[in-house]
Amino acid sequence: MTKKTLNFIGIAFVALFLQLTLSRWLSIQEIKPDFLVIAIIIIAQTEGVLAGEIFGFIIGLIADGIGLSVLFGLSAFSKTIVGFLGGFLENKKSSLNPFYYYFIIITIILIHYIILYTIYYNTGQMSLQIKMLRYVLPSTIYTSIFYILLDNIIPIRR
C-alpha cells in the first residue's frame, strides 16, 4: 500500500470520526458542518480530479451506510461531484486570488448541498426558496467556515 493511499485512508477516518462524534454537538437548528466534504475538497485539490471523485464516491458510500442516510447512494452521488469539481483546483491555490479561491470552494460546497437537499426533500412540501434559506445556505456557510478555518490553521498544500 502506497504512502498516498495510507494518507487517503487516514484523512477518511479522521473526517468520518469527526462527523460521527462532533457534528451532533456542533449542530445549530439541525444544520451541521460536513467534514467529509472538507476532506474530499482537500484530497481533490492536492491529488486531482480522478483521486477526488473516487475518494468522494467511496467516502460518500461509507457515509450513507454509517451516517445513516435513508436514501442510500445520495451522499455518494453528491460527494462524487464535489470530488470532481474540487479536482479542477489542483495546484491552483497559490496562483489564485484568495477571495476567488474561497469563492470557488464555497460554490462547490453550495452545489453539494443543493443536490443533497433537493433530492432528499423531494416531497413537494417545501418551496425552493425555503429549502435554500432554511437548509442549503446555512449548511454551506457553516461548512465553509470550517473549511476556511482549517485551511488557515493547516494550509492545504501538496
Binding site: 457534528s23 451532533r24 454509517i66 445513516l68 442516510s69 435513508v70 445520495l74 451522499s75 432528499y120
Partner: peptide, 12 residues
C-alpha cells in the same frame, strides 16, 4: 449514533 450527517433522520 444518531443523525450525524446533513440529511436523514435516522439512528444506528
Amino acid at each position: 449514533n444518531f443523525n450525524s450527517m446533513a440529511i436523514g433522520k435516522s439512528l444506528m
